[in-house]
């Protein structure tokens, strides 16, 4: 009974809106107060598919998103672990500093960042965009992973020591698998945040790094609801694709752990 309720909630909150958007994207002249659409048209999808940059943009978006997630985990896992289980002094200060990037409005620092990127030679390049996407993602990643590590009893490290497993082994074979839900949340969150960056990508990427929002957001300035709806469906599909990739990766990782 409870699971039926859970599934219908999930359906209602996630699937129905996307379905509705999809419907919106293939209708023609579906206006308030018509309850049902009367005419159908694939025009919006022709517009989206017809954009000469769409394929490249999808690939770039995935590449940027996946790399951003990888860097987030690479930097976020040790940082979160140290914050949670390390005996650091001034943890509160450190946390505040780590959280600063999302408290400061991006536009206020965009120019400074752009100058830095120019000096580093990373402006107008995908690596600069990836680097800059760490700014709005890493604080969240550290937060999510930190609370994940907080839920893991500190006794595990002692257990590893007494069983004689090297710390790193215990970390990879024991703690990380236990962190799987937190890791998944952090990864999806970082991916979605990276996916939605418009201003940072536009300014640092200079149009040379075209991600999906660069094609998609300008349409918000038009009344073309069908195209906006269509793009939104594509937009919503990317995290789903990412989640699928993630879960396969995790399954592969678990399989490897079991095999060896």
């Amino acid at each position: 009974m409870r699971s039926i309720l859970g599934w219908s909630m999930l359906l209602l909150v996630f699937v129905v809106p996307v379905l509705f958007l999809f419907l919106r994207s293939i209708t023609f002249g579906w206006r308030y107060p018509d309850l049902f659409p009367s005419d159908w048209s694939m025009r919006a999808w022709h517009v989206i598919a017809g954009d000469p940059q769409i394929l490249q943009a999808l690939l770039t978006t995935m590449l940027v998103g996946i790399t951003v997630v990888a860097l987030n985990l690479l930097l976020g896992i040790p940082a979160a672990y140290a914050l949670s289980h390390g005996r650091l002094k001034g943890v509160v200060w450190l946390e505040t500093i780590l959280f600063l990037p999302i408290l400061v409005p991006v536009l206020a620092i965009a120019m400074g960042l752009h100058i830095t990127m120019i000096r580093l030679g990373l402006a107008d390049h995908i690596s600069g965009v990836i680097l800059i996407h760490l700014l709005p993602t890493l604080p969240y990643t550290i937060r999510v992973l930190r609370s994940g590590f907080d839920r893991i009893a500190p006794g595990w490290r002692r257990l590893g020591d007494t069983l004689g497993a090297p710390r790193i082994t215990l970390f990879v074979t024991g703690l990380l698998p236990m962190m799987r839900p937190s890791l998944r949340s952090a990864a999806v969150l970082a991916f979605v945040i990276s996916l939605s960056q418009y201003v940072l990508t536009a300014i640092i990427g200079g149009g040379q790094v075209t991600t999906l929002p660069l094609l998609y957001y300008p349409f918000f300035d038009s009344a073309d609801q069908a195209v906006i709806a269509g793009f939104s469906v594509v937009f919503a599909a990317l995290p789903a694709v990412f989640l699928l990739l993630w879960e396969s990766l995790m399954a592969g990782f678990t399989y490897l752990l079991r095999r060896t």
């Binding site: 595990w156 002692r158 257990l159 007494t162 004689g164 497993a165 082994t169 074979t173 236990m178």
Partner: peptide, 27 residues
Amino acid sequence: VLLFQDALLFPHLTVLENVLYGLKYGK
């Protein structure tokens, strides 16, 4: 070897895999 208040079994591993842990990665 120290046995703790909590059993500290890895939740993602089966009983057998837990028991094997020290022989696989440990002392």
